[in-house]
Design a protein around this nucleic acid. Structure first.
Lengths: 160, 160
DNA sequence: CACGATTCAGTTGTGCACAACTCAATCGTG
DNA sequence: CACGATTGAGTTGTGCACAACTGAATCGTG
């Protein structure tokens, strides 16, 4: 049987080239499509993700957004500041915990949700996949991410 | 039957949140694993992709690398300059066409291939997938990327 | 209560991705 | 041959991702 251990190194280099690369390419293709779809909303794709989270939860501390998007403050702070400058969100130090900053959509930000309503369906249509395919792919990707996130860094070093 | 047109908008917003997001998360998880595996080689993940291409082809013009990685000169020029500074590649204006710059691995860059030999297998092992799963996932992602790359931008605008 | 540890947001610095642009070399058509 | 169009690499500017760090607020344990 063909397993990870029976394939020659050179085959593997090619295979690897393709799997990591396919993911890279698919992500960039997705980014391009979102960029186009979000252009008239004035949002980038990561900004859209942040707004999705806020539309769903109403308001959240920066940390809460970070947990849901798996992003740290180094990425979120400037992103949220840009959303604030654009007038879509409001940031306020939490009175209960002065360390925390609460973020919530402004009226304008909330109104944006209606404009964004069509986006997901258009994106889904652009993928050419039906619902079952999308769900299946999503499940595989989620499982993969969970698996990769739990990898022990020591297992990846060549000189173990 | 459940199709793209019969699902309520709000379901879709959630579903969308998950598919685009799953891809995003999987890519970032992959990046993290590669970052770790490539640390001792002194390469970033995109630099590794460029070296893979060069190891396979010996030498290529910047344009040729860009075609294979689907990256433009705006991304590649500084990346290749960093690889040159690191001593892994050499860049030379082509004598036949002065517009073109030929890139090829230095001796040190070629030697790096041996050090990188173990990387793909370790990455594959980290995914927890067997060869069939990897191939299947790769094919789906490639098909998705092709499909997304060929989308007409006009189909993505809300006010068509 | 006090004080070291932790938590949270933010900053800085590096690298990637991409759009829009420059500039020189080359091509193609009249 | 000449000259406008195209091509190839590079630059600039914006935004995202992440590591490493700062500084203030809060927590927890003695």
């Amino acid at each position: 049987m063909e397993t990870l251990d029976t394939v020659p190194d050179d085959d593997f280099l090619r295979l690897d080239h393709q799997i990591c690369f396919s993911l890279h390419a698919a992500t960039r293709a997705f980014n391009g499509v979102y960029r186009e779809a979000l252009r008239e909303l004035g949002l980038t794709y990561p900004q859209y993700l942040a707004m999705l989270v806020l539309w769903e939860h109403g308001e959240l501390p920066v940390k809460g957004i970070g947990e849901r998007l798996r992003l740290d403050s180094g990425t979120l702070s400037p992103l949220l500041k840009r959303l604030e400058t654009a007038g879509y969100v409001e940031r306020r130090r939490s009175p209960e915990d002065e360390r925390s900053v609460t973020v919530r959509p402004t009226a304008e930000g909330a109104a944006l949700k209606e404009k964004a309503r069509d986006v997901p369906r258009r994106i889904a249509a652009a993928t050419g996949l039906d619902l079952a395919d999308i769900r299946d792919l999503r499940e595989r990707l989620d499982a993969l991410a969970v698996r990769l996130d739990s990898v022990d860094p020591d297992d990846l070093n060549v000189c173990r």
